[in-house]
C-alpha cells in the first residue's frame, strides 16, 4: 500500500515536472520543472526499495546484526538516490549558470527569442 502510494506520487511529479519544462517559455520556469521531475524520480526509486514491515538499514539496538537481513529494507536504492540528489544540485547549478549567460546575451528569459538553433 505505502510503496504504491509513494510511487504514484513520484510518477505524478515526473509528469507534472516534464509538462512544466515542455510548455513554459521562461527558461527559469523550465529549469524548475526539471527539478520537480528529478524529485519525482527520487521518490519512485526510494519507494521501489521499501518493503512492508521492515525498518531503515541501520543496525542498532532495535536491529541486531545477526538478523539484519530479515529486518532491514533494501539499502541499494537509498545509496543510489543519495548520489542522485547531490548530482541533481550540480546539474541545476549548471543549468542556472547557462540560463544567466543566455539572459546576458538577449536580455530576455523567453526561450522563443533564442532562434539560432531553430529549424
Amino acid at each position: 500500500m505505502l510503496p504504491t502510494i509513494a510511487m504514484a506520487t513520484g510518477f505524478a511529479l515526473i509528469l507534472m515536472g516534464l509538462y512544466g519544462a515542455l510548455t513554459h517559455r521562461n527558461i527559469l520556469r523550465m529549469i524548475l520543472g526539471f527539478t520537480i521531475a528529478s524529485t519525482g524520480v527520487n521518490v519512485v526509486l526510494v519507494s521501489v526499495g521499501y518493503m512492508p514491515g521492515r525498518t531503515a538499514p541501520i543496525m542498532d539496538s532495535a536491529v541486531p546484526v545477526a538478523d539484519a537481513a530479515a529486518r532491514v529494507i533494501d539499502p541499494v536504492p537509498q545509496a543510489l538516490v543519495l548520489t542522485a540528489i547531490v548530482i541533481g544540485l550540480g546539474v541545476t547549478a549548471l543549468m542556472l549558470a547557462y540560463a544567466y549567460r543566455l539572459f546576458r546575451i538577449r536580455h530576455s528569459l523567453d526561450i522563443s527569442k533564442f532562434t539560432e538553433l531553430k529549424w
Partner: peptide, 19 residues
C-alpha cells in the same frame, strides 16, 4: 518527509539540506 516515512533517513536528510 515522505522519504522518512519510507524508512530512508539518509535520503531524507540529503533532500532536506540539498533539495
Amino acid at each position: 518527509v515522505l522519504f522518512l516515512i519510507l524508512a530512508a533517513p539518509d535520503v531524507a536528510m540529503t533532500e532536506a539540506a540539498i533539495g
